[in-house]
Design a binder for these strands. Sequence first.
DNA 1: GCGACGATTGGCT
DNA 2: GCCAATCGTCGCC
Length: 186
Amino acid sequence: MKISAINFSAPSYEVAHQLIGATFTVNGVGGVIVETEAYDQSEPASHTFVGKTVRNASMFGPPGRAYVYRSYGIHWCLNFVCEAEGHGAGVLIRAIEPIVGLQTMEHRRGTENVRLLCSGPGKLGQALGIVHEFNGMLLNKSPFKLTPAEKPVDVVCGQRIGISKAVDLPWRFGLAGSPFISRPFR
DNA sequence: GCGACGATTGGCT
DNA sequence: GCCAATCGTCGCC
C-alpha cells in the first residue's frame, strides 16, 4: 500500500517512522531521509518538556511546519512539528542520503565524501542550507519539498543520540543497512 | 545582569 | 576516546 502523504497529526514516534525513505529537498537540494528521532513534551529530553518558550514556540504551533534551532551555538538543526497545536511534539531529521544537488552540498560542506554530507543533524543543516528564517514555515511549500516513500522500507529503531535524559526511549529510527546514517544502530 | 548548558562536530591523542 | 569551539536560551539573583 502506498502512503500518499505524511500524516503530521500522528504522534511524533509514528511520524518519525513514516519519514524514513521519504524524499526531502530544500530549494532542490537534498535526498532520502534515512535517520530521524522523535521528541514529545511528555519526556525530559525534548526541548518542549519545560513548556512553551521563545525558542520552542513553533513546536507548539500547528503540525506540518518546520522547527529550526541552533545547536551548541554552531549548527542549525531541522525538525518537523507533529501531532496537534499545543502538543509540543516533533521529529528531528538526523540524516539524509544525498541524491540531488550533490555539488551544492559538497561546496557547502567543504568535502566530496558523500557519506559526510548529511550524516548528522548539524551536517544536514549545513548541506541543505537550513537557516533560522525557515522556523515555522510550512513543509508542503517552497523552499521545501517532501515526497513519501513509494514502497515500504525496512526500518530499524533504537535509543536516541546525544541526550542525557530519557535515554532508554527507543525513538530513533533509521533505514536498515544505510551507510548514510550518523551512527550505527545496535 | 550573569552563568551554566546543550537533540554537535571535527581534530587531535 | 577526549575535548575545544561557540552562542542563544533559560533560570535565577
